[in-house]
Design a protein around this nucleic acid. Structure first.
Lengths: 340, 340
DNA sequence: CTGAAAGCGCTAACAT
DNA sequence: ATGTTAGCGCTTTCAG
């Protein structure tokens, strides 16, 4: 009934002592008589006293909140990162305000401004597929807002980043296809301005070059990162005179979309066309998709630790943390039987 | 650089006016001279003034935050509900603190206590598979904390609920199997104390009874709600002398697990065994799983609206809102060819 | 060991 | 239309 309207003043009154003493007792200050402490604590419990965090925050000029902005949290990827983040920061007494920008830079901006208004003490961000809002982040950094980018980053920003070596792992994925004997390897790339798009495209080109496979512009198409965008890629690739015998997709949603569309059209995978994804997903695993798995939980944990460090000492140098990954080979890409 | 340490006092000083006037100008009070308002606003902008929400909250005794606790947010289901919630409450100026209990009642309790300490103004909860902590929620309700349960509820609690009619839709799912001609329909149920487990089991029994299909205890097994739990169910059902010809699973993760395990063992679906799920998932759709689809986003929106109503007026009566659902028939359950 | 008092940043009477 | 003042609930000097 009283519903936490009890303040230290009430405790003080009920005990005939000053609020300062109550405060000290409650905060376990050493300079207080054990008896007094006892009495305060018992009255506090009896009255169902709950400290008013707001007041304390106002005084201390902090609020123990950090903000997280991700492009979406419908697929497993960002939720896993978020769980990693929460694991670490909750342990340190911080709360997380989670926002999803739904891949829209406008909403992303609104989210960030909302979080600023809520006075979060730090931010962990993965940017939208549009990768706009650089000005926003530049301002944040200039104003010394602790901030860490994860997975989808702005390389040109002087900010903390937690990523994997997308270029290297894209290289490995394509190298695997080449070693399987595939000759015409297409690449369905993500949104043009996205960091992961560029890196993975780079890795793709690196691999072709390393193994002296001629690059064909016609086998590269920017389709985006969402599953429903795969169809136009497949439509296009199958419309070519010389069709590809393998597809390296920018991520698992696109690869998944490819598999479904190819199967719908009656193609066998990998016999007719092999498919390789990136950022291994549960669906991809079920479909037998070869893919690069990322340490999502760990990315979250490390991003959180990096952020906390920066919050405690803004002066520490900015760093890019590159985590390890793994290429898991499954049935969507198998060594070709025929000689080459 | 100044990093938002600017207060209304600074603005007042810089303009030689009182802080009250500044406050009024900033808050768009009508009783202020337009010129003054102009000058305040421009100085505020020049100084990069940001209001201190903490102070305002302290004064108004609120903090515009609501808490959400879900058992997990790795699968699409709860994230979609959360998006629905955020849509509504953000619009009204509220922030959402999202916690996941990882299906553990202990963590659930910690989360709730954390949210209480953060002084959230209301809660939206979906309980863990363990369905404990009733005492906790009873206390919360007694202390007049506005609270709405979604999907996984405590029927015995006098609290707002947003659900679908699990019993009815389970009935429809099983009825569909019966009409397809399946004779030995097994049920892999969820965790025993979970509300959805009981309701869906009820619906299963209702359907058998309605169509005069004898209930066989041996065809019912409580396996839980997580995909990896499906295997023991399949192991058990296939160990029976008289094997089932269809499985009604408590949810899509279990149904998915069944499909994968059955296929691994070389069974054809639905020829050898049909499988039907519940709470249609993206993976289920890809696997061609017949399932009941729930209006997740809408559940979130409605839960949020209900909560806001209760927050604004605690006196309004508690209600159980039952949303519509839909049975989507796919290839995992097809009419049997053979005569019966 | 305890109390008095100042103040975190802001709003809202109450004056003028 | 503007200023003065009193807090919101709490912590923290500064005095005893």
């Amino acid at each position: 009934m009283s519903s936490s309207k009890v303040t230290i003043k009430d405790i003080a009154k009920s005990l005939g002592i000053s609020i300062a003493t109550v405060s000290r007792a409650l905060n376990g200050s050493p300079e207080i008589h054990p008896d007094t402490r006892e009495r305060v604590l018992s009255v506090a419990k009896a009255l169902h006293y709950k400290p008013n965090v707001q007041a304390r925050n106002l005084l201390k000029r902090r609020n123990n909140m950090i903000g997280v902005v991700v492009p979406e949290f419908i697929t497993f990827f960002f939720p896993e990162i978020i769980i990693g983040i929460q694991e670490v920061v909750n342990e340190e007494g911080y709360q997380v305000l989670i926002c999803q920008s739904n891949e829209s830079s406008d909403l992303e901006r609104k989210n960030i401004e909302m979080l600023e208004a809520s006075m979060v003490e730090g931010l962990i961000v993965s940017v939208t597929k549009e990768s706009k809002n650089i000005d926003l982040y530049e301002r944040l950094i200039e104003e010394q807002m602790p901030i860490v980018f994860v997975n989808r980053v702005f390389p040109q920003l002087h900010a903390n980043q937690v990523i994997i070596d997308d270029r290297k792992w894209a290289f490995k994925a394509v190298e695997h296809l080449i070693k399987c004997g595939y000759k015409r390897i297409a690449h369905l790339a993500g949104n043009e301005h996205l960091s992961i798009t560029k890196e993975r495209l780079h890795g793709y080109l690196d691999a072709l070059q390393t193994y002296h496979v001629p690059v064909q512009e016609s086998l590269i198409m920017y389709v985006g990162v969402q599953q429903d965008r795969a169809k136009i890629g497949v439509d296009y690739l199958l419309s070519l005179k010389e069709k590809p015998d393998a597809i390296f997709a920018v991520n698992d949603p696109i690869a998944t979309g490819c598999v479904l569309e190819l199967k719908r059209r009656g193609f066998s995978i990998p016999e007719d066309i092999a498919v390789v994804g990136f950022s291994e997903s549960p669906i991809g695993k079920i479909l037998g998709l070869t893919s690069v798995s990322q340490p999502t939980f760990e990315m979250g944990r490390i991003a959180a630790r990096t952020l906390l460090n920066q919050m405690r000492n803004y002066a520490i140098p900015v760093e890019t943390i590159t985590l390890d990954a793994k290429l898991n080979i499954r049935s969507s890409s198998l060594p070709l039987k025929k000689k080459h």
